[in-house]
């Protein structure tokens, strides 16, 4: 028996853990959602049909299966409202992710260049907002942005504006809220890759005649791409489904998919359509995930 075998068994069991987690808390619930999305709305408790009644035997189960329909998905495609919501969600997510990258990259870069003992402090400062509830922080923004809020008071005091500006219930307020909330998720993976970057590589670039800006674009940036990918995904995916921030800070003229889900589920009590919308959202997120996976694999192959 080699030493390796002693550790092989527990290691194999440990490897099962994430799959078990995924099955229990993702695949099984997703199965429910998928099933509901294929059902019909009904005034009942729960508000959809067909239901699987295991007590009524095989025949009933088969009938229930036969009753499943794609009507809800057809509705999603045929109704401009849903398509518009999806598009808006994508536009908001792409725009905010770009803003986050533009703000987060310099911050992460600066952090990675700090003296070692200050890096920990900077890291703390990035994480500190998490100590306050997310909802409270968004409400605080409402306070700051409202008609007689802090921002307008400052602008008026500085004579930059003569009448209070409408901030709340605008897209600007929503983007502000999103960027504010998601910035740490962009900074942390970027910082992690930039801090790992060997300073000798930058010296080598400079030694070989690259001016500082060229060094950045030819060495630093390409080598930080895994961090960029992780940060972009960590922000993009939850922003697409974001509900709280657009609901509290944006105007009611257009909605994001998260808001539509909420509306269908709680106001219209239309579980099947809400589920179909959720399934469609998931499908929407698959392509960027696959793309990221491909990129990751390519980097790994390059390294291995």
């Amino acid at each position: 028996m080699s030493a390796r075998n002693i550790f092989a068994r527990p290691a194999r069991y440990a490897a099962i853990a994430p799959y078990l987690w995924m099955v229990l808390f993702f695949l099984v619930p997703f199965g429910f959602v998928l099933k509901i999305s294929l059902s019909q709305t009904a005034i009942a408790q729960p508000p959809y049909l067909p239901l699987f009644e295991f007590t009524e035997g095989w025949g009933a189960l088969k009938a229930a299966f036969a009753a499943l329909s794609l009507d809800n998905f057809r509705l999603l495609i045929s109704d401009n409202l849903y398509i518009a919501t999806y598009l808006r969600s994508l536009v908001v997510a792409v725009t905010s992710t770009l803003i986050l990258l533009l703000i987060g990259y310099p911050i992460a870069y600066g952090m990675a260049r700090l003296p070692q003992r200050w890096q920990g402090v900077a890291m703390m400062l990035v994480i500190v907002p998490f100590w306050t509830s997310f909802l409270i922080r968004i409400y605080a923004w409402i306070n700051i942005l409202q008609h007689d809020g802090l921002l307008n008071k400052i602008l008026l005091a500085l004579h930059l504006v003569s009448v209070p500006v409408v901030w709340l219930s605008t897209d600007s307020a929503m983007y502000l809220g999103i960027v504010y909330s998601y910035l740490p998720f962009m900074i942390l993976p970027l910082y992690a890759t930039l801090a790992k970057l060997d300073p000798a590589l930058l010296e080598a670039a400079s030694d070989l005649g690259a001016a500082p800006l060229a060094t950045f674009w030819l060495v630093t940036f390409p080598l930080s791409l895994p961090g960029v990918g992780a940060g972009v995904l960590l922000c993009f995916i939850p922003i697409v489904g974001e509900f709280v921030i657009p609901d509290l800070l944006a105007g009611s003229s257009s909605m994001m998919i998260g808001q539509t889900l909420w509306l269908e589920f709680f106001t219209n009590k239309d579980w099947p359509v809400a589920s179909a919308a959720a399934v469609a959202l998931l499908l929407l997120l698959v392509p960027p995930l696959l793309l990221y996976d491909r990129l990751q694999r390519r980097t790994l192959q390059g390294e291995g």
Partner: peptide, 18 residues
């Protein structure tokens, strides 16, 4: 450094991994 007519071979080579 990027304008000096000298070049350096680094201790751990500092090859650009990408």
């Amino acid at each position: 450094p990027h304008q000096r007519p000298v070049n350096m071979m680094f201790q751990n080579y500092a090859l650009f991994p990408h």
